[in-house]
Computed example of a mutant assay.
Amino acid sequence: MQPDSFIISMDDGADILVRHHPRAGATRLYISHGNGFAVDGYKVFWEPLLEQFDVVLFDMRNHGRNDPTGADGHTYQQMARDLTTVHKKVEARLGAASKAVGVFHSMTSRAAMKNAVELGSPYDALVLYDPPSVPPRGHALYEAMRGFELKLVQWASERPDRFTDPAELEAQYAAARASAKWLPQARADMARAVTRKAADGGYTLACARELEASIYLAALTLDLWPDAQSLGVPTKLIGADPQGNGGPPTGPANNALASEGGYDYVGVENVGHLLQIEQPETCRNILTDFVSSL
């Protein structure tokens, strides 16, 4: 069945496309994605959830199916506000859910943390997949996370952003070490999700590489290392491999945040930052167990 699709406007006028897969009376999951990605690229993770949950899918501004709006508002501060606006306007249109849970990855997880700490989360609970948690300067893991984000700034700034077909990007994902563990279907889904038709007949990145780079850089200045209690709602923190094991330092960083901040936490072994499309069943099971406990 085709989802109900509609556009909602943020408080600065930017539009976000929302898709609703209804399931009457079920817990409502609001699902979004990480920096430079798009929610359709996570289909191997969220599609089976449609059988059990009322699901709202949306891309963040300048990503995926949304029309580009440029650099104005492309900040964590605005994205944190967007998460409240999305919830408020979706609930007003669809009716209040019995329970609304934000299911977010990476950039959107960090935006949800900022939203909760500064604005008060509108969601009844949060499930945060591997937020790029940067500890305070002086922390044992600060330099590792700083180096990680700076490498991503350079990578994003220089990445190819023009393609004759999404299959070109899919091949790049298949050849890259960082995406080697993604399920093959997810590589195909993500390549289509993060590209859009260009005026010249080819394809370009939906999220401009310079905007992607700006969010990686912004992660270093958020000063956001909150304890679980300060988020104000039940929160499940799900991290990449807690020991690193050749993967990104986000795993060890979230392990440390969980230990220091008292989070309900699972570190998934042998996965990288895109854990939802590497081990989708494991990631779904953690989510459903948490939601059933609410």
Rank of each mutant, 00 (worst) to 15 (best):
24 A>I: 11
94 L>C: 04
25 G>H: 12
33 H>V: 10
67 D>E: 15
14 A>Q: 14
130 D>T: 03
57 L>F: 08
107 M>H: 08
83 L>S: 09
64 G>T: 03
83 L>I: 11
129 Y>A: 09
133 S>W: 04
34 G>H: 01
79 M>H: 09
21 H>Q: 07
104 F>M: 13
59 D>K: 05
134 V>M: 02
45 F>M: 06
31 I>P: 02
28 R>Q: 11
106 S>Y: 06
69 T>D: 12
87 H>R: 13
90 V>W: 01
105 H>R: 11
100 A>H: 03
15 D>G: 13
90 V>N: 06
39 V>Y: 00
72 D>T: 13
89 K>T: 12
32 S>I: 06
100 A>D: 05
129 Y>W: 10
90 V>P: 02
14 A>D: 13
30 Y>I: 04
123 Y>K: 01
21 H>K: 06
61 R>Y: 11
98 S>R: 14
36 G>K: 01
33 H>E: 12
38 A>N: 05
54 D>E: 10
113 M>C: 12
103 V>I: 10
27 T>H: 03
127 V>D: 02
108 T>Y: 06
22 P>V: 09
47 E>F: 10
55 V>G: 02
113 M>I: 11
86 V>R: 02
35 N>R: 10
130 D>I: 02
110 R>T: 15
29 L>I: 12
109 S>N: 07
50 L>M: 08
57 L>M: 12
94 L>R: 08
109 S>D: 01
23 R>D: 02
105 H>W: 08
48 P>N: 10
64 G>Y: 05
29 L>V: 09
98 S>N: 14
58 F>R: 08
